[in-house]
Design a protein around this nucleic acid. Structure first.
Length: 418
DNA sequence: TGACGTCAAGATCCG
DNA sequence: CGGATCTTGACGTCA
């Protein structure tokens, strides 16, 4: 079983994909962005390797406007070697990567133009996986599309247009239930016609449900039949409703107790769980640590080193409490640990605790800092205490010094990124 | 015609 | 100048 996250890496310095607006697009700009994005993808893979995260969704924005006529350079040939290098790394470390074309790729449309651009988009996503040199267990996930006043006809159109895809695209396509049009039963029916795997999304099912008496576990078991040997391990999407937001909005974080309730209902199913959540890799690490077989407190200590300054700025009391929780080295208090951290998310930063956190950071920088940097810091710190500059302003200065002096312990701290 | 969802880029304003 | 806060874009469907 693997647990993973989609596209963006949160809380890590200098891993960010770039985009470009059509009005600023030219060949040089495009090459600059493709090089940057491929190098960012490689960094993302390196990050996943370092954290032992085995499931990752690659952004569809890797090559901007890839499936349009606006791109005229031959990016496939220009970047073939780089793709292969990254793909080799993915294979070597056994990371399952996937892609998810967006909601505007509508294969079942009755508008020929829309269908053609959906096909082009799916062929682009297929090309990325092909260029990485990955076998057909590496997939792209798609929704069915629109209803057009007649669901049965819309389904027929999906099946018909599916046949227009290349062999490789057909072998890589998997389909997911959505939150308003096609429910999980529709998906199972479509799958039985065209023989491609179904991804079960629990949140979409709870919004657009067939039968509330059927549990997530039961639906996952039903979907498992659509996954053949060559398709690799069955995948599901897991997300929960964001409290107080629009129906269907993904939550900021995955709440560990709620996740474990879901996870423990499986009775040891061997599936891949793609989390759809705003805090991305941070929730993935949480869920991985909560479900790992090797329960060693060092995993929590490693996590704590990333969180502790962030927690300190919010509440000294919680900071002490979590520190104390980790003192008994034979324990593995994973649920308590993450629950305490989750409780801090909703807390506002507290001036006194913030000052403490700044002092703590400065302690680790001051021996490296030049005289003028020390003076600069003191000036900013006084201004911060007098509410003349923001917390972010002083954090940014401290981060720039951490980067300059390569203080890994600080650079990796979530303190600077949230 | 605007909302929907997504997230970085770009614009604008402030001190 | 840095920092904070809006607005824009690019897509197709649906009310």
């Amino acid at each position: 079983m693997s647990i993973g996250y989609a596209c963006i890496i949160e809380g890590v310095n200098n891993i960010r994909y770039k985009t470009v607006k059509l009005s600023n697009l030219n060949d040089d700009k495009l090459r600059e962005i493709i090089s940057h994005n491929l190098s960012t993808l490689e960094k993302a893979i390196d990050y996943n390797i370092s954290k032992n995260i085995k499931l990752y969704r690659i952004t569809s924005e890797l090559i901007p406007f890839a499936s349009t006529d606006y791109v005229t350079i031959n990016w496939v040939e220009e970047y073939r070697d780089y793709f292969k290098k990254i793909g080799d790394k993915i294979k070597k470390h056994n990371i399952k990567v996937s892609l998810h074309p967006g909601q505007y790729s509508v294969l079942n449309s009755f508008n020929e133009k829309v269908v053609n651009s959906a096909i082009r988009d799916l062929e682009y996503h297929t090309k990325v996986l092909d260029l990485l040199g990955l076998d057909f267990s590496f997939k792209m996930v798609l929704h069915i599309g629109g209803i057009y006043f007649d669901k049965e006809l819309a389904i027929k159109n999906f099946i018909k247009n599916f046949e227009l895809l290349s062999t490789n695209a057909k072998r890589r396509l998997i389909i997911e239930n959505d939150d308003k049009s096609f429910n999980i039963l529709d998906l199972l029916r479509i799958s039985s016609e065209i023989n491609i795997p179904v991804v079960y999304d629990n949140l979409h099912n709870s919004i657009n449900s067939v039968d509330d008496s059927i549990t997530d576990f039961e639906w996952i078991k039903l979907c498992s039949k659509t996954w053949k040997k060559d398709d690799g391990r069955q995948k599901v999407h897991y997300s929960i409703q964001a409290p107080n937001k629009k129906i269907g909005s993904h939550s900021e974080t995955i709440y560990i107790e709620q996740f474990l309730e879901y996870y423990n209902s499986f009775d040891n199913l061997d599936i891949d769980i793609m989390l759809e959540v705003k805090d991305k890799n941070i929730s993935a690490l949480k869920c991985i640590n909560a479900t790992r077989k090797n329960k060693d407190i060092r995993y929590l200590e490693e996590e704590w080193s990333l969180f502790k300054l962030y927690i300190l700025q919010k509440s000294y009391k919680k900071y002490k409490k979590i520190s104390k929780l980790l003192t008994e080295k034979s324990n593995y208090p994973v649920i308590k640990f993450y629950t305490l951290i989750e409780e801090c998310y909703s807390l506002k930063v507290n001036k006194k605790s913030c000052i403490r956190s700044i002092e703590e950071v400065w302690k680790q920088i001051k021996d490296y800092a030049l005289d003028n940097e020390k003076i600069n810091f003191e000036k900013k710190f006084i201004k911060y205490k007098k509410n003349e500059i923001s917390l972010n302003a002083i954090k940014n200065y401290l981060l720039s010094l951490s980067l300059k002096y390569n203080i890994d312990n600080l650079i990796t701290s979530y303190y600077f990124y949230f």
